[in-house]
Write a protein that binds this DNA or RNA. Structure first.
Lengths: 158, 158
DNA sequence: TCTACATTGTTTCCTTGGAAACAATGAGAG
DNA sequence: CTCTCATTGTTTCCAAGGAAACAATGTAGA
């Protein structure tokens, strides 16, 4: 197996790895579902977060996010508010309790990012450039595949 | 943002991308769920595939795979068989109809792999080595996180 | 050999999340 | 201004899959 083939092999392995890790600790820590913590994270970081924006960022449907936010509201982890000039859109804020979870999550997240950065110090600038170029290229390929998929879907809907 | 940080950004983006693509065409083509096609692929490629082996490879529970195989058996896409020396384990084979799906899937899969390989021809051998080293290192980090997660889980079960 | 334990596959119960229909509101064209 | 269409958020319905209990079988140690 040459280097290119091995790259593909490891790349696919990474894609296939379940999400179980990285953030899952917090599910255990606070008895919350991964998606709920993730949602809190988005509400904490997006300006005037609403259902639609969160759904887009989390690659989930508005329906799913709507349900999660409802749950978070019940548990008083978030608050909702509206703007005087718009009666349709509903925005979310973290409550004090929500912020606690936000920061615990952030701590773990930052720690994970740092471990990646530490690992990357072993590479030269040229190597880093190559890695980055590769990752960007893979994203472009996925975008293209996504576009093809959308076309197929559109045809079906006709 | 320096190169290392950008690498992490794109890496996370790739991890977060939904699976929607790459194989999803076939769901449309043959009216089958992604996991079902994936399962057929494993049965076609694993020697004496059984529920446990498939579950491990697909990062799913035995229960889930058991149900999928039951469905595939009903639809006559796979056959089951046993060995004389073991009354417990049940193995699966593809039927002729199952093999058709297997090869259609394989065609798309190989085409995707080829597009990755084509993209990689633009890199020097040294660059490829760096990319590979990075992907392997990321896998190691994930393994470590996995191990930590298992420990936490074990503690809970006590 | 017999007994405890491990492993396999299955089933039941439950939660998550998608699809899609819906109501409410906003925006834009005439 | 009004009508149409787009957008937002919600809800209902349903399927997929995990957790866990279970039965059946295999295995290893006394």
């Amino acid at each position: 197996m040459d280097t290119a083939e091995e790259i593909i092999k490891y790349f696919i392995r990474i894609r296939e790895r379940p999400n179980v890790l990285e953030e899952y600790h917090k599910k255990l820590f606070e008895g919350m579902r991964l998606a709920e913590v993730h949602c809190i994270d988005k509400i904490g970081s997006i300006e005037d977060a609403n259902v639609t924006k969160i759904a887009t960022e989390m690659h989930m449907t508005r329906g799913a996010i709507s349900k999660i936010c409802k749950k978070l509201l019940c548990r008083k982890l978030i608050d909702s508010y509206q703007k005087p000039e718009n009666n349709k859109e509903v925005y979310f804020n973290l409550t004090e309790e929500g912020k606690e979870i936000y920061f615990v999550h952030k701590k773990y997240h930052d720690r994970a990012i740092q471990s990646y950065l530490d690992m990357l110090t072993a590479y030269t600038e040229d190597e880093e450039k190559a890695i980055l170029k590769f990752l960007q290229a893979m994203n472009v390929i996925y975008d293209k595949q996504s576009a093809v998929f959308s076309q197929v879907k559109d045809k079906e809907e006709v």
